[in-house]
């Protein structure tokens, strides 16, 4: 566990980074000829100004909690899971199929969808894990490339003439899931659903696993020092495969939550980049599962605020995206630099 002084210092660095990002963002907004105050007011309004705004933030934060967990559980084992985006698509697709075409009673159906989506994601994480452990294939490359495979495959499935295309609406999406498979919405009229509760539950679960069980301790010790772990009798290869499979499972749940709670169907290219946000979220959280909840809230707030900036006409959506990018960059940059330096020294 972090010492209290370290914790405070880390929080201080994070806050400083956020301030710096907003400062530079303000300069860019000003230079582009938009009102800085209007953009920031709307960013705030869109993220926290009222029930709908908070709903938007929570809706966007929900999948990012999962993908942040996905990134950090692999990170704790010394692996970079860049492929959460694809694992999420696979999970979402399988959850949508189980949700629409299986007939089960309420609750059981939701559990079945989550399990199927999670396992599908886990399989998509197991492949690079196996390749890494048995053949030494760099997981950086394999997870990312498998992402493109997953997204492209899902595109094919829901495109017109694809086997899962919904003919009724013409759009690239599957049919609606059964009512028994839907996660109830908890903050109507917003899109926030029980998926949020599931996400927080899993954050606690991951925390318990990593810090309170021997298996989690072993997984972390592989990340801290592989030779020492091996000397201590831990079978490293199995841990590597397990870590990436768990990462895939969590990302798969992110997609399942989107299908079961937010959209009630699989929509082609539904993600604005939640998988990538998870990398940022995991790093902002300093790879701590509880921190991931708050990191995801920040990312979700930025996304929700960006929508309001666009709607109010304070600035085009692109400007909001620039701001999001800056915040992520400034928060991650120090962590990333530190991590890379540590890895080079090794």
């Amino acid at each position: 566990m972090l010492k209290r002084s370290t914790l405070l210092r880390e929080m201080g660095i994070t806050l400083l980074s956020i301030t710096l990002a907003f400062g530079i963002g303000a300069f860019i907004i000003w230079a582009a000829g938009f009102s800085v105050s209007a953009v920031f007011i709307n960013l705030w309004k869109g993220a926290f100004g009222g029930k709908l705004a908070i709903g938007q933030t929570l809706t966007k934060a929900t999948p990012i909690i999962f993908t942040s967990l996905s990134f950090l559980i692999a990170f704790r084992c010394g692996l970079f899971n860049i492929g959460a985006e694809g694992q999420m698509y696979i999970g979402a697709m399988v959850a949508a199929v189980v949700g629409a075409h299986l007939h089960l009673p309420i609750v059981l159906h939701v559990v079945a969808c989550l399990a199927a989506g999670g396992l599908a994601g886990a399989f998509w994480g197991w492949i690079p894990g196996y390749l890494k452990a048995q053949r030494g294939v760099n997981e950086f490359v394999s997870t990312m490339m498998l992402s493109y495979v997953a997204i492209g495959f899902s595109d094919y499935l829901v495109a017109p003439r694809g086997p899962l295309h919904d003919d009724k609406y013409w759009a690239n999406q599957t049919v609606r899931i059964a009512a028994t498979a839907a996660l109830p919405r908890i903050l109507k009229p917003t899109q926030v659903s029980m998926a949020l509760a599931v996400a927080i539950f899993f954050a606690l679960l991951v925390w318990y696993y990593l810090f309170r069980t021997p298996a989690g301790y072993e997984l972390r010790s592989v990340g801290l020092s592989p030779p020492a772990a091996e000397y201590g009798g831990i079978r490293i290869k199995r841990k590597l495969i397990l870590a990436l499979s768990l990462a895939g499972l969590l990302a798969g749940l992110a997609g399942s939550g989107e299908v079961l709670g937010t959209h009630f169907r699989f929509i082609g290219r539904f993600s604005p980049g939640y998988g990538w946000d998870g990398i940022a979220g995991g790093l902002i959280a300093r790879a701590h599962p509880i921190g991931a909840i708050f990191a995801a809230l920040l990312m979700g707030a930025l996304r929700a605020g960006g929508m309001q900036v666009q709607r109010s006409g304070a600035a085009p959506g692109d400007i909001a995206a620039v701001l999001q990018g800056l915040v992520i960059f400034f928060i991650i940059a120090p962590t990333l630099v530190r991590t890379l330096i540590r890895w080079r020294r090794r």
Partner: peptide, 9 residues
């Protein structure tokens, strides 16, 4: 007031 959604989701 108008918006340009990037995707159908």
């Amino acid at each position: 007031d108008y918006v340009e959604p990037a995707d159908i989701a």
